[in-house]
Simulated scan of single mutants.
Amino acid sequence: MPPNNPPTARRQRLGAELRKLRERAGMSATAAAGLLGGNQAQISNIESGRHGVSAERVRTLACNYACTDEALINALVGMTGERGRHWWEEYRGILPVGLLDLAELEHHAVALRVAYTMHIPGLLQTPEHARTIFRQVVPSLPPHEVEHRVSHRIKRQVILFGDKSTPLTAVIHEAALRMMFGGPEIARDQLRHVLDMSEHEHITIRVIPFSIGAFPGSGQSVFYAVGPVPQLDTVELDQSHGPVLIDAEAQLHRYRMLLNQLEGVALAEAESRTFIHKIAQNLGKV
């Protein structure tokens, strides 16, 4: 079988989950390949994401591995198929692959939970706010790449609109709300946009005020994508070199606990809207 295009993070995740099933079954790659009538390289290519795998083959592998979790099997089957021509593919070769993987992750998530202490979540940013941030990247980005990143960030927000809008719960620290990125006018427009977005039924915005003092995970930003089954949840962490995706079971449990605690100390939705409105008033009338 000839190699496909470079694997996406989604295909790599599918391969990794199939490897977990095989290892839990105590089966070697060679033995697994034998049951398929293939060789060890075939299994390795599937598990690394280098080669795609059909829905039928996923079900066969799950059966061979004695997996009886039908919800997990169906979720894995849903990850099969050739890579579609989604909107983020137009940025392939233009922007870092990690940004495309993030858009793909958001597209397939059934819900999103995020917590930010120094920035407004990307899914809630205005173009001017995003542009101001990208102009501060080190080393500096050329103007055309700044614009590519801005357009990519705004297009990501499509998941929040339409008939199948993805539920979003965002915890934002007061520090992020008071950042004057781009000056008072841009900052005021950004806060107005956050308030407008908070009125959507599927979007929950909670604020952690300075008065709370110390809180769990202070200084850390967390992006948690909820999968169709808990085993397929994913955490994305922003790093200076790009997004990092985490899916180890222990780490997922840790970040679920962290988000639960952050939401526990944050203001309620109505209080949060009032709080944001007051900050915006200090910048001028909303």
Results as ranks from 00 to 15, higher is better:
267 L>M: 15
266 A>Q: 04
268 A>M: 13
267 L>I: 10
247 D>L: 07
274 T>P: 01
268 A>W: 10
269 E>R: 06
270 A>Q: 12
259 L>H: 06
269 E>M: 01
270 A>W: 05
257 M>Y: 04
262 L>S: 04
257 M>T: 13
265 V>D: 12
259 L>E: 02
275 F>T: 11
268 A>I: 05
249 E>D: 12
277 H>M: 11
248 A>K: 15
250 A>P: 00
257 M>D: 12
274 T>I: 03
267 L>E: 11
262 L>Y: 07
270 A>S: 11
274 T>H: 12
257 M>F: 09
275 F>M: 14
272 S>L: 02
268 A>S: 15
266 A>D: 02
251 Q>C: 09
266 A>I: 00
277 H>K: 13
274 T>G: 13
265 V>A: 09
248 A>C: 06
256 R>M: 10
275 F>I: 09
258 L>P: 10
272 S>T: 04
264 G>D: 07
257 M>C: 13
263 E>C: 02
248 A>G: 11
250 A>D: 04
248 A>F: 10
253 H>P: 00
269 E>Q: 09
273 R>T: 02
268 A>T: 13
253 H>C: 08
270 A>E: 12
267 L>H: 06
249 E>R: 06
268 A>F: 09
264 G>W: 01
259 L>V: 00
252 L>S: 06
258 L>D: 13
255 Y>W: 08
270 A>L: 08
257 M>I: 10
264 G>M: 00
271 E>K: 04
250 A>H: 06
